[in-house]
């Protein structure tokens, strides 16, 4: 595994048109080594989700350098990277509603070219093995997030991007989910970038990047996909 998973220098991103441009990310620089973890903090609209979208190739930066796994972002095959090396976890709705939890994990593993035989194992590891045949609307929010983590780890990721993964959960469930995330991240040795409002959760990461000063009080209106 490469020593430096991620290197960002002078990254800029703004939204809007020629008349009204709203800067979201300005001269952002940071690094993440393999198996390292980084928390992105900041108010709503500070650019956490935008940065995560850039880091998985769903959006392009306006300027700056981004090197991922030693490759310049302009040369990266983002589809292949997302399919095989980058796992993304959102606050909610990470699962296909028409598939059981196990089939969701199988789908994600198969897209990444990983064996389906280990899918049940990941659900077991996350303590929801007994719910494998349930559908997303038949389990709790915490169990859904655990299933989302199972999907991510089933693809053997090199980097996990988590956007408020515990944001919609109660404290106890959020702690459980966070425990699972950090434990498995440590066990598998993948990198983790976590966007959160929660200082306690952020403190569990090796580094914290506060985006509040980057674009304070700006709401880009962009969230999700």
């Amino acid at each position: 595994m490469e020593d430096n998973v991620l290197k960002v220098r002078g990254l800029r991103k703004s939204f809007g048109d020629r008349d009204a441009t709203v800067p979201v990310l300005a001269d952002l620089s940071f690094e993440l080594h393999s198996a390292g973890s980084l928390a992105l903090m900041g108010r709503s609209g500070s650019g956490k989700s935008t940065l995560l979208n850039i880091l998985c190739g769903l959006e392009q930066p306006d300027a700056g350098e981004l090197t991922l796994f030693g490759q310049d972002h302009r040369q990266i095959d983002w589809q292949q990277l997302r399919r095989e090396r980058i796992g993304v976890v959102f606050q909610e709705a990470n699962l296909m509603p028409a598939l059981s939890l196990l089939d969701n994990v199988r789908l994600r593993a198969s897209l990444a070219g990983q064996p389906e035989s280990r899918c049940q194992h990941w659900l077991d590891v996350l303590d929801i093995g007994a719910l494998a045949q349930r559908f997303p609307d038949q389990v709790s929010g915490g169990q859904r997030q655990r299933a989302a983590l199972a999907m991510v780890f089933a693809m053997s990721p090199s980097l996990i991007l988590a956007d408020e993964p515990t944001g919609s959960l109660d404290r106890v469930t959020a702690d459980d989910v966070a425990d699972s995330l950090f434990r498995l991240q440590a066990e598998t040795g993948c990198g983790l970038i976590l966007a959160t409002h929660d200082p306690e959760l952020a403190s569990r990461c090796e580094k914290i990047l506060d985006l509040a000063h980057q674009a304070a009080d700006q709401n880009t209106g962009q969230s999700g996909l």
Binding site: C56, Q79, R82, E84, N94, M96, P97, L111, A112, L225
Partner: peptide, 13 residues
């Protein structure tokens, strides 16, 4: 649409 875009996040062309 969200779920179809989810496929894009998972690397589907």
């Amino acid at each position: 649409l969200w779920y179809f875009r989810l496929l894009a996040v998972w690397g589907t062309a």
